[in-house]
């Protein structure tokens, strides 16, 4: 049973454009720099065989909002599915924080009615609202959101 005052989640916080997200680190299989990820997926002939998930498409981020994208540090969250590793690119990592039950909020029902199964809870960090992303809802990774770009 979860104790109210004990930390229940370790959450990695990051931005994509103006949006602030968090992911339970128990849901991911590692965090890499983009360069490391690229090297991992080069074959012997030097061809890149990256399996990068399109985080914009998955999180529903409009394409016109990418002005901040190139200015910050980026990381790749690693997700293993059926023996394959996939990458999920995020920007401006803010570190890992511990959250207790009292720090977590349900997504308001209004938002739940509209969509958005990708977000399962929210928290407030330094006055900012962070949407917690459920990466387990992304599997299986066989849809068009997989791309070969690492830009």
């Amino acid at each position: 049973m979860l104790k109210k005052n004990a930390p229940v989640l370790e959450v990695f916080i990051f931005f994509i454009d103006d949006y602030l997200f968090g992911v339970d680190i128990a849901m991911i299989d590692g965090i890499q720099d983009p360069e490391e990820f690229e090297v991992c997926y080069q074959d012997e002939a030097g061809n890149k065989t990256t399996m990068l998930l399109d985080s914009d498409q998955i999180l529903g981020i409009p394409h016109q909002r990418n002005h901040q994208r190139n200015s910050g540090i980026s990381k790749i969250l690693l997700l293993e599915n059926e023996g394959l590793l996939y990458g999920f690119k995020v920007y401006n990592p803010q570190g890992i924080i511990s959250l207790k039950i009292d720090d977590l909020y349900e997504i308001p029902q209004v938002i739940k009615y509209l969509r958005v199964s990708t977000f399962w809870a929210a928290t407030i960090v330094k006055g900012e609202i962070v949407l917690l992303v459920d990466l387990s809802t992304l599997a299986p990774f066989d849809h068009p959101s997989i791309s070969n770009r690492l830009d």
Partner: peptide, 8 residues
């Protein structure tokens, strides 16, 4: 501050 929700 109002935090936007992507896709809304």
């Amino acid at each position: 501050t109002i935090a936007p929700v992507p896709g809304a």
